[in-house]
C-alpha cells in the first residue's frame, strides 16, 4: 500500500465525515447512554442517576435470565444450523450445477426478491398456513393422515424457528454464494485431473474456500436472531420469549435501567460470539476484495 499525503488524508476525512457524524450520533451515543443508564436506579416515579450494580445483580442472579438466554441460544443454534445447511446446498447448486450465467443470476435473484419485502408480512403469511384450520392441517386431514388438527404448528417454538429460517436464510446464501463464485475453476479442474472425486473436491477445496462466507453469514444469523423482539412474541403466541423480547417488555413497563442492563449483557454476548468467529476470518478483506 502506497503512502498517502496529509492532503489526501484530509480529503478522505472530509468524504467520510457525514458517515462519521451519523454513526456517532445514532449508533455510538445511544450505546453509551444505554451503558450509563444501566447503572442507574429506578422506581415507579422514574429513573435516577446513580452508580449502582443492582440491575446487574438482579439479572445475573435470576433464573428467568438464565432460561431466557438458554432459549435464545437454542433458537440461534437451530436457526444457524438449518440456514447453514440450506445456504450451503442452495449456493452449491447455483455455483456448480447451473452452467448458464444468465440462469444462475436469474435463480439467485429469485432467492433475493423476498428479502426486499416486508418481514412482518412474511411472518404473518405463515399464520393461515400453520393455524388450526390452516392449509397444512386441512391438507393432512383431507388426506386422512390426521383426525385432530396438529396444535404444535402455530404459536409454538417450532413456528418461531420456522419463521426465522424463512426470513433469514438469504443472509447465509449471499455470502456463501459470493465466496463460491470467487473459486477459480482451474483449481477444481486441477484437482479433478489429479484424480480427486466429487466428494474430495467439496471436502478439500470448496469447503475451505467457502469458510469466510460461512463466517460472515453466521455473524448475520447470530445478530438477527439474538436481536429479534417481535417474531418470537407473535409466532409463539406470547408463550415464549427471548432476551430482546424480555427487554421490550421491560421498556414498555418503563423499567429503563433494568432494560439497559439487559441490553449491555446482550451486546457483550453478541460481541463475544462474533469475536470468536472473527478469530477465523478477516472481515475487512472479505468485504472489500
Amino acid at each position: 500500500m502506497q503512502k498517502i499525503t496529509t492532503k489526501e488524508n484530509g480529503v478522505s476525512w472530509i468524504q467520510v465525515t457525514p458517515l462519521a457524524i451519523i454513526l456517532l450520533g445514532f449508533l455510538i451515543a445511544p450505546l453509551l447512554v444505554i451503558l450509563t443508564v444501566s447503572f442507574w436506579e429506578y422506581d415507579i416515579g422514574g429513573m435516577y442517576p446513580a452508580f449502582s450494580h443492582v440491575n446487574y445483580t438482579e439479572i445475573l442472579t435470576s433464573h428467568t435470565t438464565i432460561n431466557l438466554y438458554l432459549r435464545t441460544f437454542k433458537f440461534t443454534f437451530f436457526v444457524w444450523l438449518i440456514t447453514l445447511s440450506i445456504g450451503f446446498s442452495v449456493s452449491y447448486f447455483l455455483s456448480f450445477c447451473v452452467a448458464s450465467t444468465t440462469w444462475r443470476i436469474a435463480l439467485f435473484l429469485l432467492c433475493t426478491i423476498p428479502f426486499w419485502t416486508s418481514n412482518v408480512i412474511r411472518m404473518i403469511a405463515w399464520i393461515p398456513f400453520l393455524g388450526r384450520n390452516g392449509a397444512i392441517n386441512q391438507g393432512l386431514a383431507s388426506m386422512g393422515l390426521i383426525d385432530q388438527p396438529l396444535e404444535f404448528l402455530l404459536f409454538s417454538e417450532f413456528a418461531v424457528i420456522l419463521t426465522y429460517v424463512h426470513l433469514y436464510t438469504l443472509f447465509m446464501i449471499v455470502p456463501i454464494f459470493n465466496a463460491m463464485s470467487k473459486i477459480d475453476p482451474d483449481v477444481i479442474e486441477a484437482a479433478r485431473d489429479a484424480g480427486a472425486n466429487g466428494w474430495q473436491i467439496v471436502r478439500h477445496i470448496i469447503v475451505p474456500l467457502t469458510l469466510n462466507g460461512v463466517a460472515l453469514g453466521s455473524i448475520f444469523i447470530i445478530t438477527l436472531v439474538m436481536g429479534d423482539f417481535f417474531i418470537v412474541r407473535v409466532m409463539s403466541g406470547g408463550l415464549s420469549g427471548s432476551v430482546a423480547s424480555a427487554m421490550y417488555n421491560e421498556i414498555t413497563g418503563l423499567q429503563y435501567p433494568a432494560a439497559a442492563a439487559n441490553a449491555v449483557l446482550l451486546v457483550i454476548t453478541v460481541v463475544l460470539l462474533v469475536s470468536v468467529i472473527l478469530r477465523f476470518v478477516d472481515v475487512r478483506k472479505v468485504l472489500t476484495e
Binding site: A20, F26, P30, L31, V33, G227, D228, M247, L266, V270
Partner: peptide, 20 residues
C-alpha cells in the same frame, strides 16, 4: 464502526436513542 452499525441488534439503537 460501519460494521458494528450493521450487526448491532437494531432494537438496541432504537432503545438508546429513545433514552437520549
Amino acid at each position: 464502526g460501519a460494521i458494528i452499525s450493521l450487526i448491532m441488534p437494531g432494537f438496541l439503537i432504537s432503545f438508546g436513542m429513545g433514552l437520549i
